[in-house]
Each structure stands twice: as C-alpha cells, then as structure tokens.
Amino acid sequence: MLELRLVQGSLLKKVLESIKDLVNDANFDCSATGFSLQAMDSSHVALVALLLRSEGFEHYRCDRNISMGMNLGNMAKMLKCAGNDDIITLKADDGSDTVTFMFESPTQDKIADFEMRLMDIDSEHLGIPEAEYHAILIMPSAEFARICKDLSSIGDTVVISVTKEGVKFSTRGDIGTANVVCRQNTTVDKPEEATVIEMPEPVSLTFALRYLNSFTKATPLSNTVTISLSSEIPVVVEYKIAEMGYIRFYLAPKIEE
C-alpha cells in the first residue's frame, strides 16, 4: 500500500511542469526515504534526478519499495486539475496497475480523485559519481532563465566560462554574438538575490541552450539555482524544492572534436 500526502501540492504540480517536456515516460521510485525519479531525455544527452524526502510529506506510507511507471504528459494533465492550494495525495494499492491522485481543497469542501494507468518502463538507473566541481555558481533562478532565453535567440550553444572576475555566458549565431557577464554580488539585501561563485579553478564548457532552457522550466520551484561545473563532465543545474528535496538536471557538454 502506498499513500503519500503532500500538503503543498503545488510543489508536485511545478515538478511535473518542469520535467514533462524533457522526459516522456519515467519510473517513480518510492521507498522509506522518499519519492524519487531518475530519467534521461530521449537523446540521452540530459538526465533529471528528483528527490522528495519522506519527511516533507504530511503523511508518508510506503509498505514496500515500489516503482511506478508513468507517462509524464498524462500525469501533468491530471495534476493541472489540482488547485495551487490543494493538498495532493498519491495512492496505489499493492499489485494494482493504476495510481490515484486525490486533490483536496484547503477548506476540504471539494475532493477530487483522478486515476491513471501505470506503464511498464524498463529504465536502468545510472550511477552518478560524486564529483569535485571546479566552479559552483549560485544565482537567482529568474536571472539564469533570462540569460538562457535571451542567448537562445542569438545562438544554439552557450560557452559558460568561470573566472575570478565572474561567470560569462557567450553565444554566436548568424545574426551576431552575445556575451553576458555576471559578477559575484553578495551585497544584496535579500540572500536569494546574491550571485555567489565558488571557484577553486577557472573552467569553460560548451552546452546546447535548448536543454538549459528546458531545465529553467523548474524556475518556479526555487528563487535560486545552483550550477556546478567541471571540465569535461556534465554540468549540474539544481533547484531546491522547499525543505523537502531537489530536482537536478545533468547535461553532457559539447566537446571540441
């Protein structure tokens, strides 16, 4: 028996909005520690890893480890029917091939339940090694989204270079070139507006902007985004989810041939 009750149902709504266009079908894994997902996009260039820890749920019952295959587009359609302030409960009986989403309005005067068929998805988990990053950026998530959106109107790849001066996002295309430099800025009145650069050493990597733009769909989840870079390995773009977990996007770099 599985029953997960999330008072801040809007978090699950936002999670689905941020991954449904990147990944079509995925397995949600439920265990005593929490509700998680790991999936690659269809071209195996990006990977998303989601974790919602069990303590973040008001009620978390998971009798045994279970993996539920879902079509994320259909799941997003059902979650769109939940109000932003609704409590969302996810239920599945042992051995059943469906999952039920229950939406309760805050005043408990409206209760809806949506049942969705589960799918068999044979996806293998990838081992993600803990890496020492050459540069870690923490910046306002809206700012990062704006930069990715603006640069993608000029070119389709971005070179992200981190030096002690700051971080530079560069692109070029048919109509010309664009460079955006963000300097470390910790003299802000609200901590979430700071741009922090931890850079043990300079690094420069090239990525496809369309994936970064897809990752920024997670912007509503967190005021800040953490971008961890190291030469020749995938970048990690992480959005924290309230006090309960995170959504991490990994993107393989474009390598000079």
Partner: peptide, 14 residues
C-alpha cells in the same frame, strides 16, 4: 566543431 556528447558516456549503468 563541437560534438554533443551523451550522458551515458559519463554515468555508468548500475
């Protein structure tokens, strides 16, 4: 030219 690499060449299947 920049060749797009794949995530599977960095993270091994468990």
């Amino acid at each position: 030219v920049n060749q797009q690499s794949q995530i599977t060449s960095f993270f091994s299947k468990m």
